[in-house]
Simulated scan of single mutants.
Amino acid sequence: MKIKSVLARWLHVPIPPEQQHVSDFGRIGSFDSVLVRIETECGLVGYGEAKEEVGSEGNSHALVALINRKFGPALVGEDPRDITRLWELMYNGCRGHYALAEGHVFPILGRRGVSVSAISGVDLALWDILGKHMNAPVWRLLGGRKAARMPAYASGGWADADRIGQQLLGYVERGGFKAVKMRVGVIDGDPVHSARRVHAAREALGPDIGLACDAHGTYNVAQAKRFCRLVEDANLMWFEEPVTADDKRGMAEVRASTAIPIAAGESEFNRFDFRDLAELRAADVFQPDLAICGGITEAMRIGAIASAWNLRLAPHLWTGALAFAAGLHAAAASPAGWILEYSLGANPLLHELAREAFPVQDGLIEIPDRPGLGVTVNEEFAERYTIT
Rank of each mutant, 00 (worst) to 15 (best):
V285K: 06
L350I: 05
G121S: 13
A336V: 11
Y153R: 03
A201T: 00
V231E: 05
F71K: 01
I164E: 07
P151C: 05
T244A: 13
V254D: 08
M300G: 03
A264T: 14
A252G: 14
P359F: 07
A306N: 10
K132R: 15
L35G: 08
L311M: 15
L340T: 02
G170W: 02
T376R: 10
V22L: 13
E379S: 10
P207E: 14
V186C: 08
P16S: 10
A325Y: 02
G345Q: 15
R249K: 03
P16K: 06
A278K: 06
Q287H: 11
L100F: 09
G206V: 02
I28A: 14
I28C: 10
L322C: 06
A118K: 09
V6N: 09
F71D: 03
P151N: 06
G363W: 01
L317H: 09
V116R: 08
A201V: 00
I3P: 06
Q166L: 07
A101F: 07
N59T: 13
C213T: 15
R112M: 09
F177R: 11
A330M: 10
G96H: 08
I365Y: 03
Y171R: 02
E173V: 01
N59G: 11
A215H: 04
A101P: 01
E379R: 12
T244S: 15
P14A: 11
A99D: 12
A354Q: 07
R174Y: 01
R9H: 04
L11Q: 05
P242R: 06
R174D: 09
A147K: 03
G93E: 11
V285P: 02
A282M: 09
P242Y: 08
Y342W: 11
S56E: 06
E88D: 11
Y385Q: 09
L364F: 03
H61L: 14
F269E: 02
A330G: 10
Y91S: 09
A224T: 10
R196Q: 14
A101S: 14
L277I: 04
I129Y: 01
Q166H: 12
T297I: 03
R226C: 07
A256R: 15
I83F: 02
R163K: 12
N378W: 00
I83G: 02
F274T: 13
A308S: 15
R255Y: 04
G170M: 02
I38W: 12
V76Y: 02
G250P: 05
E232Y: 00
R275Y: 12
E41F: 00
L169Y: 06
R183W: 10
I164H: 05
A357G: 04
L11S: 08
I83V: 13
M1G: 01
G175P: 06
Y219Q: 03
I296N: 05
L35Q: 06
W318Q: 14
Q20R: 15
E268A: 13
G93P: 05
N310W: 09
P368D: 11
R249C: 00
M1K: 01
D289T: 09
A308E: 10
F358Y: 12
